[in-house]
Amino acid sequence: MVDTMVIALFRHGLTAENERKAYMGWTDAPLSENGRDKLQEKGRPIPEYEWICTSDLVRAKETAAYWFPDQKLWRKACFREINFGDWEGRTYEELKSLPDYRNWLNAPFKVSATNGESFKEMAQRVEEGWESLMKRAEQHHRIAIVTHGGVIRYLLSVYGAEIKNFWDYTIQPGEGIELIWSRKESFRRKERCTLLQEVAFTGKKAGH
């Protein structure tokens, strides 16, 4: 009987906002043409997953639909990026003179974006989503989540194999990383995973 548990965290592909380094938490932007091209160049994930969950934002849904075209996708708003409020769609250069923005840069875990979401609020809803995976783990051993950079950083900081802080983790658009627990019971107890490993992709263009 298989007793391991694998949760793969995938970051959606590039958007035009990513390319110009703008904040885009809940902004429902699609993948850019460049982003779609890069997904095709990279190919699809080689490992198979039994259950696929995605943020309900279009950039995550489009990415998941490309990677897992023959599987049902479960959409969950709890795996959205943090909401940047009034700063959505704006860049550092556009915001750097604002006092509220400078305060947030100095203390991003304590200060919220103007009319946005606090880090604590984001963490709470992501944990609610994580709790829902506990129920899926009763039936499945390999689950994939297509989500956003901030969500992935948070989950790795809490459940990664080593104790690291939020900023120690970096995952590029269109990449994935697997969290592996050697025993499902450890996963159910919300312990740190046993192993982290990058997800391999086919490396072939679509249609080849």
Results as ranks from 00 to 15, higher is better:
141 H>W: 12
188 R>H: 08
207 G>M: 00
39 L>I: 09
46 I>M: 05
139 Q>M: 11
27 T>V: 11
129 G>T: 12
13 G>P: 00
116 G>M: 05
185 E>A: 08
146 V>A: 02
208 H>I: 13
169 Y>I: 07
53 C>D: 04
21 K>I: 08
107 A>L: 12
114 T>Y: 11
82 I>N: 14
119 F>L: 15
201 F>G: 05
83 N>P: 13
86 D>I: 04
66 Y>N: 13
106 N>Y: 08
150 G>H: 11
164 K>N: 02
17 E>F: 01
47 P>T: 00
133 L>F: 11
68 F>T: 13
37 D>L: 09
139 Q>Y: 11
6 V>G: 08
134 M>P: 03
37 D>P: 05
30 P>V: 01
59 R>Q: 04
33 E>S: 06
119 F>K: 15
85 G>S: 14
1 M>L: 13
110 K>C: 12
160 G>A: 11
204 K>E: 15
57 L>F: 02
129 G>Y: 09
199 V>C: 07
6 V>T: 12
159 Y>S: 02
30 P>R: 04
20 R>H: 10
189 R>F: 01
40 Q>A: 15
96 K>Q: 07
157 S>E: 01
63 T>S: 12
107 A>I: 12
144 A>H: 04
44 R>D: 00
63 T>W: 06
176 G>K: 00
108 P>M: 00
187 F>K: 08
8 A>I: 01
103 N>E: 03
152 I>P: 11
167 W>D: 08
86 D>Y: 06
34 N>I: 06
100 D>P: 07
124 Q>N: 12
10 F>N: 04
40 Q>W: 08
75 R>Q: 07
127 E>Q: 14
82 I>W: 12
164 K>I: 00
83 N>E: 14
27 T>K: 10
73 L>Q: 03
86 D>A: 11
195 L>T: 14
200 A>I: 07
146 V>R: 01
103 N>P: 00
38 K>T: 09
15 T>A: 04
62 E>T: 10
123 A>S: 15
105 L>H: 09
51 W>N: 10
133 L>E: 08
11 R>W: 02
49 Y>K: 08
132 S>L: 10
172 Q>A: 07
145 I>L: 14
43 G>M: 09
161 A>G: 14
49 Y>W: 07
105 L>S: 08
12 H>K: 01
198 E>F: 03
164 K>W: 02
70 D>Q: 15
121 E>Y: 12
54 T>P: 03
41 E>T: 02
56 D>W: 05
18 N>R: 03
61 K>E: 06
187 F>Q: 10
87 W>T: 12
119 F>P: 15
42 K>S: 09
179 L>G: 02
157 S>N: 01
37 D>F: 05
155 L>N: 14
168 D>M: 05
69 P>L: 04
59 R>E: 03
53 C>N: 06
130 W>Q: 10
175 E>N: 04
24 M>C: 13
57 L>C: 02
199 V>Q: 05
149 G>P: 08
154 Y>V: 07
23 Y>A: 14
158 V>T: 13
189 R>M: 05
202 T>R: 01
166 F>K: 02
33 E>N: 05
148 H>R: 01
12 H>S: 03
31 L>Y: 01
124 Q>C: 08
32 S>Y: 06
138 E>G: 10
1 M>W: 09
65 A>T: 14
11 R>A: 03
168 D>W: 03
97 S>W: 00
64 A>W: 06
63 T>K: 07
121 E>L: 13
117 E>I: 13
143 I>A: 03
48 E>H: 10
208 H>S: 15
69 P>G: 08
143 I>Y: 02
120 K>H: 13
